[in-house]
């Protein structure tokens, strides 16, 4: 199965000195729901925009469903942060625009979904709440029946029930068609339920990428009295010392034995994510989801 998203040494530079993304290598298999995690400024939006054909590559290459994003525009469903649409247009007109500008647009499904969500087609976009606008934007991409969804923090304005409903729609889209979803979010708990593939970005670089279950099996969280790290030869991702105890996320190595007084466990999803998001190996978790 060809990769839904493939990047080779991808980089983007804004202006003269500011790199939004560097050395990005990715091979996201099709049919996955991918969590794209990282603090603001980490390159999430840059990556999303490049995959959607909005930004050119400064160096390297990016391929979506086997071709450049500009050649695959009809197979990409993109919703930018805050679900921007045309403020003075009516919902019905926006759906019509979707129909006119997309060859495979399912207009019936779109209007059914809008009706089911209780949004009136005659409402103007700027009269809708943030959550309703997000739903209209999501309806637009769902009706397009893309092979790759690119959703930049799509659920930020949705209440829990709406999030549930939206996830349901996404899963329905994926399991039926094998579409891939890439979505960036700060909400770790919902990512774990919904996603089975992970990309962690920080400072414009990919820190971790892979199937979530595999990644959790490839790492351990080990805790013990201060000092245990210095002996033992562990491949440390990050560590934190507090109250005489050092806790570290390490790459699993079955050749190493656990010394006395040490406890180890498989990392939880957020231990894994936070472990790769902290800077230089020392945990500063409060920065992570800034």
């Amino acid at each position: 199965m060809r990769a839904a998203l493939r990047c080779r040494d991808l980089a983007h530079r804004y202006g003269r000195d500011v790199w939004g993304l560097r050395d990005c290598d990715l091979d996201v298999p099709a049919g996955r729901v991918v969590a794209l995690v990282g603090p603001n400024g980490s390159g999430k939006t840059t990556l999303m925009n490049m995959a959607a054909g909005l930004l050119p590559a400064t160096t390297g290459s990016i391929e979506v469903v086997g071709d450049t994003p500009q050649a695959r525009l009809d197979r990409i469903g993109f919703v930018a942060q805050d679900a921007p649409l045309w403020p003075r247009m009516r919902v019905g007109d926006v759906l019509e625009i979707g129909r006119c500008m997309n060859p495979r647009f399912d207009a019936q499904m779109a209007s059914d979904r809008i009706e089911r969500l209780g949004i009136r087609p005659r409402s103007r976009i700027d009269a809708l709440s943030g959550g309703e606008r997000a739903q209209v934007a999501l309806t637009l991409v769902l009706a397009k029946k893309p092979e790759l969804f690119l959703l930049d923090e799509p659920m930020a304005n949705l209440d829990p029930l709406a999030r549930r409903e939206f996830l349901g729609s996404m899963f329905e889209a994926c399991s039926g068609t094998g579409a891939t979803v890439l979505y960036s979010s700060h909400a770790v708990a919902e990512l774990e339920r919904a996603c089975d593939y992970l990309i962690v970005l920080r400072g414009g670089h990919v820190r971790l990428v892979g199937d979530i279950d595999d990644l959790r099996m490839q790492h351990r969280v080990i805790r013990g009295p201060v000092g245990w790290l210095d002996r033992g030869g562990w491949d440390v991702v990050s560590e934190q010392t507090m109250a005489g105890q050092t806790t570290a996320l390490v790459r699993r190595d079955d050749t190493l034995t656990l010394g006395p007084g040490l406890q180890d466990a498989s990392p939880t999803f957020d231990e894994l994510v936070i472990g790769y998001l902290v800077d230089g190996g020392t945990a500063r978790p409060q920065e992570v989801f800034a």
Binding site: G31, R32, V33, R164, L167, G168, F171, C174, S175, R193, A194, C195, D196
Partner: peptide, 11 residues
Amino acid sequence: VVDSLAVNPNT
């Protein structure tokens, strides 16, 4: 299961 738990179908 997906509908009732809102988890990834792949899972």
